[in-house]
């Protein structure tokens, strides 16, 4: 078996349809739709009152499901790809193995929740960007990109889904999301702790890791999917991020990046609308 497994070779059964971030960014459909397409609503947050709430929640749950598979695969690869001691500490690998078990449970939970919500495996496309972030040749960059950026996003997503379950009167969904949220806080904290320990005497490596985390954060804020604004489907779970080891400054940075991404997307939608108006005139 090779070390450093390429994203193109991720093994899936026939139900799955994989797309890249490039495919997703090239898709004319967007999470943040124009006012008209969204039924004249100015609140885009995923709540049961949204007209498309059921479908949006099902789509998000499927996204969680495939994300958990890739998180499982990424944690597993970190156990295998690096030599113990010289490339990655034994204790770090133990943490990654523990994370693999947690992610395996999350896949199980996501399958059961998807079934509960009426979704079939493979009903939505699988974006493989999470695993791509787990392919770095430096374990510190993997921890920054996956544990801090992507698992941080998972904290935001699970908090939003937990609230959705609460508002929709679905204790089954709320219960499961709460348990997964507890695990994700642990994973992010794991990433924060290891990042600090492994780069304690190597500021350059820490800088590179934080830059990589910033790139991944920005990538996942694409289209304003996640931000403090009610216009974003997913909120920023500030309290849980604090528990996971993010400093106030770091949370503010993510909020700013998310807000910027939302504004960029709104400007792009406005440009498209103006062009369509001109073309129709």
């Amino acid at each position: 078996m090779r070390t450093f497994f390429p994203v193109e070779d991720l093994a899936r059964d026939d139900r799955f349809n994989q797309i890249t971030m490039r495919d997703r960014m090239g898709d004319a459909r967007s999470v943040l739709t124009s006012g008209e397409a969204a039924g004249k609503r100015n609140n885009n947050r995923l709540t049961p009152s949204r007209k498309d709430a059921s479908d949006a929640a099902r789509g998000l749950m499927h996204g969680i499901f495939v994300g958990e598979i890739q998180a499982l695969e990424g944690a597993g690869r970190t156990c295998f790809d690096f030599e113990t001691g010289t490339e990655a500490p034994f204790a770090l690998k133990l943490d990654m193995a523990r994370q693999a078990w947690d992610e395996a449970r999350h896949v199980e939970i996501s399958i059961m929740l998807s079934n509960w919500m009426g979704t079939e495996i493979g009903q939505y496309a699988e974006n493989t960007v999470l695993f791509e972030a787990a392919c770095s040749s430096d374990p510190v960059l993997r921890l920054a990109g996956v544990n801090r950026a992507l698992e941080g996003l998972a904290i935001d997503v699970f908090t939003t889904m937990k609230e959705f379950g609460d508002l929709a009167g679905d204790p089954y969904l709320e219960f499961c999301e709460d348990w997964m949220l507890a695990d994700e806080v642990t994973h992010v904290k794991m990433g924060s702790d290891w990042l600090r320990r492994l780069t304690e005497h190597d500021p350059e490596r820490r800088k590179k890791a934080l830059e990589f985390q910033g790139v991944v954060d920005k990538l996942f804020s694409y289209g304003g999917t996640r931000s403090d604004s009610e216009e974003s489907p997913i909120g920023l779970a500030r309290r849980f991020r604090e528990l996971a080891g993010f400093s106030d400054v770091e949370v503010e940075d993510i909020a700013a990046v998310s807000r910027e991404a939302l504004d960029e997307r709104k400007a792009a939608v406005a440009r498209m609308q103006a062009a369509a108006t001109l073309a129709g005139a």
């Binding site: 078996m1 070390t3 093994a11 156990c79 395996a104 896949v107």
Partner: peptide
């Protein structure tokens, strides 16, 4: 280490988990 590495290489979902 081997079990972790193999997760990404097996297509069967139940085996993967």
């Amino acid at each position: 280490e081997a079990l972790g590495g193999w997760v990404a290489t097996v297509p069967e979902l139940d085996v993967k988990m």
